[in-house]
Amino acid sequence: MTAIQSRAFVQIQNVFKEFETEGKGAAPIPVIDGVSMEIQEGEFVVYLGPSGCGKTTLMRIVGGLETATTGEVRLGGERVTGPDRRKGMVFQAYTSFPWLTVLQNIKFGTKYRDDVSETERNEIANHYLQLVGLEDFADFYVNRISGGMRQRVAIARTLAAAPDILLMDEPFGALDAQTRDFLQEQLLEICRAERKAVIFVTHDVEEAVFLADRVFMFSARPARVIEEIDVNGAIGSERMADTKETDAFFHLRNHVRDLMRDQARAIG
């Protein structure tokens, strides 16, 4: 079966995933149940679904950190076979390196690029340091800064590696509400400047609707796409701090929240 060459940047084609379980005779656990989708360049896509449904697993398959049991993922027409610099990843757990300062962490993102000189590495690091607004903390070790700042370091480091797609797994999941709101707005600004495809995983409905161009709503495990929500169509592509107070946002959020409740009920 040859893949149809569409022009979409990311093509997820009929992906199934089962995890083998320990123990004799134990059946494998199905986690992804036949997911297909296409994502365009510069598009911000959010995966929304109840905890444990398989969002992280699907995103890791796109990133090459996990292999699909059947089906495949193509990035720019090329089949994904493993992780590399083209698929940048930001994890929920803090991954900024404690032995490096904020600026050194960001510069680490350029370490394995062979397309830039040493001077350019420094310029790139400083550029992203400013983009995430951490100039005043450049020489701090990351154990001395807040969780929100550590996630900004991780985002800047990933961008410094110049990936084609940004994969983010609940990066703001461990942060308080205010920090979260602030980082959501900052992230949208950054993504507007970068024009990269983004897959952002969350189980927070409001976060999903606020950030996304499109939301993919997943079922409880094994994950299937229940509904694809065209957020731009419903509330427009402009997002500001007060977008969350508009009627359009409110209605869409309620609709998505109801979908989410149905799935949560399915788990029991």
């Binding site: 990133g63 090459g64 950190l65 493993g82 992780p83 590399d84 610099r85 698929k87 940048g88 990843m89 994890f91 757990a93 991954t95 390196f97 680490f108 993102g109 370490k111 394995y112 690029r113 480091r157 990933t158 590696a161 990936p163």
Partner: peptide, 22 residues
């Protein structure tokens, strides 16, 4: 942490570079 190693891969490092620098 496993994520440290995986971060290395997604920044383009090879296994030997991950061992040395992470």
């Amino acid at each position: 942490p496993r994520e440290f190693v995986e971060t290395g891969y997604t920044l383009g490092a090879k296994p030997r570079q991950i061992t040395r620098s992470i």
